[in-house]
């Protein structure tokens, strides 16, 4: 499978990718995007099987990215990896068509629990 990791922080993209490996999901192709706009372009070009996106990014936020994808008819499985995890954001994410939110800080165990049904 191909996984798109979208986060404006280089170090957080590396941590997400490292944690995917530590969780045992190491046989997947990874592509990276530095903000929501780049992720939207990458979804069209790379056709990932899963998007793991930060929420708070410049140019286009994660929730704006999700809305843009869904309004264009793209139904790629989409999950947020975000430092903010309020009930309000969970409701917005769910209404927008996201699978779930993984809150930062996370562990490899969290990734295994949340992603095993998709990547396992």
């Amino acid at each position: 499978m191909k996984i798109l990791v979208a986060d404006d922080s280089r170090v957080m993209r590396q941590i997400v990718i490292r944690t995917l490996r530590q969780a045992g999901f190491d046989n997947h192709d990874i592509v990276e995007a530095e903000d929501g706009a780049a992720a939207q372009t990458s979804v069209a070009a790379e056709k990932p099987d899963l998007v793991l996106s930060d929420w708070n990014m410049p140019n286009m936020s994660g929730i704006e990215l999700l809305h843009a994808l869904r309004s264009s008819g793209n139904s790629v499985p989409f999950a947020f990896v975000t430092s903010e995890c309020s009930d309000e954001m969970k409701a917005k994410a769910e209404a927008g068509g996201a699978l779930f939110l993984i809150s930062k800080p996370f562990t490899a165990e969290t990734f295994r629990e949340r992603l095993n049904d998709i990547l396992g």
């Binding site: 404006d8 170090v11 430092s83 903010e84 309000e88 930062k104 800080p105």
Partner: peptide, 30 residues
């Protein structure tokens, strides 16, 4: 650049978790 990115992300993660227990709604900056 690495130091700025890493320290900024540390603040972002701390701030996001703090924001979750503060009065809402509010927005978090970069």
């Amino acid at each position: 650049d690495d130091i700025g990115d890493a320290l900024g992300e540390l603040a972002n993660v701390l701030g996001g978790n703090v924001k979750s227990v503060l009065p809402s709604p509010s927005q978090l900056s970069l």
